[in-house]
Amino acid sequence: MSDVLLRVENLRSGYGRIEVLHGISLEVREGELVSIVGANGAGKTTLLLTLSALVRTRAGSTTLDGARLSGLRPHAIVARGLIHVPEGRLILAQMSIEENLQLGAARTPAVQRRAAIDAMYARFPVLGERRALPAGSLSGGEQQMLAIARGLLAKPRLLLLDEPSMGLAPKLVDAIFSIIAEVRASGTAVLLVEQNARKALALADRAYVLERGRITLSGTGGELLHQPAVVEAYLGSHA
């Protein structure tokens, strides 16, 4: 259909002597939303951290738009447009909301930065109202909005989202998922890691199932949503 944006081939990584990812291959095409589902400890977060070079690649390769990412340092990967909104959000709690967004927009030319940040305030009014407050004063859902807004200001070619709905009340989970849908609708490719497999698969163009460091299934979101193995392992107990 469309061009491949991110291509991951036989990726291996881990911590110390323990290998977590045993040769992962996957791809994300332009404008696509791809979900990765899997149990706790399957290696989902490690996969994203390896793509961002916070965990070292031991073997295999990653390319974005055909250019090699493996071997680059984390800030250089951000400069290529692979933007990672990490698990636990990692907002800078002591700095103001405005400063968090300034950091997100650091590579936007100074003349356009103000307008870009103001556009985010228009999109997330709750952030605009509190722009001068420390980011740590926001609620969990608001912090997730800030983390996503900060990521979007970095003008992602591909946005990596790690557990964006974690720890949020159901109503906020819906709000976060509709933000993700908007991001995809605006043409930005998204690689989404989620515990909430039902929602993640329902939203995804395509999805992969990760089990103990290996991809065991892949298909469109709809296909996986109705795969008996997936239903049993990841969707069964959820209402």
């Binding site: 961002s52 990692l90 800078l92 002591q94 950091l103 650091a106």
Partner: peptide, 20 residues
């Protein structure tokens, strides 16, 4: 801002594109 970001959280600073 970069110095304060690194001070607060090195990992977050890296993911924001700061050369730590």
């Amino acid at each position: 801002r970069a110095i304060r970001a690194v001070a607060e959280n090195t990992k977050a600073a890296s993911l924001l594109g700061i050369d730590v």
